[in-house]
Amino acid sequence: MPLEPGARVRVRSMTPPGHVRTPFYLRGKTGAVERVLGPFGNPEQLAYGHAAERLPLYRVRFRMDEVWPDAPNPADTIDAEIYAHWLEPA
């Protein structure tokens, strides 16, 4: 079921060795869906020349102090685009 804007999500903390577009610094971090995009082909399949599953893509907004606990401006934010299979409800 697609997520709605505002939904709280956590980025999965898996670390496979291949091509992925989920930055390491956001893994395991919790944020809120800012908007829903897509569907887009899964880059983890496209990168190896395979037909790609179409996935929802979410812009997720993270507070700076969630990502960096020592952030001097904790209410600043980072937005990143994360494919559906990297997100779990928080």
Partner: peptide, 15 residues
């Protein structure tokens, strides 16, 4: 200034 919120956008995917 500190009262301006900074929003960083990391272009991680298709946008």
């Amino acid at each position: 200034p500190d009262d301006v919120t900074v929003r960083v956008h990391d272009s991680t995917a298709d946008m």
